[in-house]
Design a protein around this nucleic acid. Structure first.
Lengths: 158, 158
DNA sequence: AAAGATTGATCCGTCAATCTTG
DNA sequence: CAAGATTGACGGATCAATCTTT
């Protein structure tokens, strides 16, 4: 064998190649979804916020940022804009004066219902190219990586 | 089976579920890589720019933004910061007075070599959890989706 | 006119510091 | 003091408008 690199480096390059294409796909996919959602009247960040409120009802702002895995600063300013545009409303938590509850307004509901259908259509348009078995396989691989990512994140965060 | 939804909607939901976990993984993975690279002295956006210059040598700014699939505005301001920090230098293309060439400086080279090793280690740390066969399978699925994304993007962009 | 880059306005993301409430 | 939210300063992303060069 004329290969002078140790196995770990070979595996490393292999990993990097896969990761690079994975990142590129994620980037263009997010770009596409974002563009279609914005064209329908809602940025993807706002779609995600309304999605949380749709699932869980009125929610503390800290829980939203935690669930979406973004910094507190991000959520404060995103909610600022959404309040400005009448999509959600802020209300102090009666049980805890420190916390702030975020509530979807009727216009927010209407906008969400319209845009979420478009988002789902875009995703279906792309992921339907895989077929059910391949989607299952992809989901399995993604979950394995997500588990590993969580572990690596703990190491960094601890 | 008590399922009253037509097959297309079932497939749609299936697609959305896979896509949701895919996006979540991409988000946390990018967050992690970004954090580790920044801790080493370079944001991931800058790593990507230097990576292009490492692969292709001195490159027109428009070619960099096209290759990384970001808006021209993004590249202008990212390069502004990198010039400010001495990582790259701007130079007018002698063949075309409209174009601007971006060149890696020696400090940029040193920083890149240091940080790219860290980036690769982070990616290997996560993707090595898959094993070679699963990585091949993932790469195949990613490429299928990338092809579909490109098609869907043309429709939207055309 | 078309192509390449810059600029303006704005949104979303980070970290670090601050204020308020428990 | 600790927890929750806001604010400041800034990087990086978008679109749309502008300026220069071909």
């Amino acid at each position: 064998m004329g290969d002078n690199r140790p196995p770990c480096e070979q595996a490393g390059r292999d990993c990097v190649d896969v990761a690079t294409e994975f990142f590129a796909l994620a980037h263009s996919l997010k770009r596409m979804v974002n563009a279609r959602c914005r064209a329908a009247g809602l940025s993807y960040a706002r779609v995600q916020v309304l999605h949380v409120l749709d699932d869980r009802g009125t929610t503390r702002i800290g829980d939203i940022s935690e669930h979406l895995d973004v910094a507190a600063r991000t959520m404060t300013s995103t909610i600022d804009g959404m309040v400005r545009d009448g999509l959600v409303a802020r209300r102090t938590d009666p049980r805890d004066g420190r916390a702030v509850l975020v509530e979807m307004t009727p216009p927010g509901r209407a906008t969400f219902d319209r845009v979420i259908a478009i988002r789902d259509a875009v995703l279906a348009e792309v992921f339907a190219s895989l077929g059910p078995d391949d989607r299952d396989r992809l989901l399995e691989l993604v979950r394995t990586l997500a588990g590993e990512t969580a572990k690596a994140g703990e190491v960094a965060g601890g």
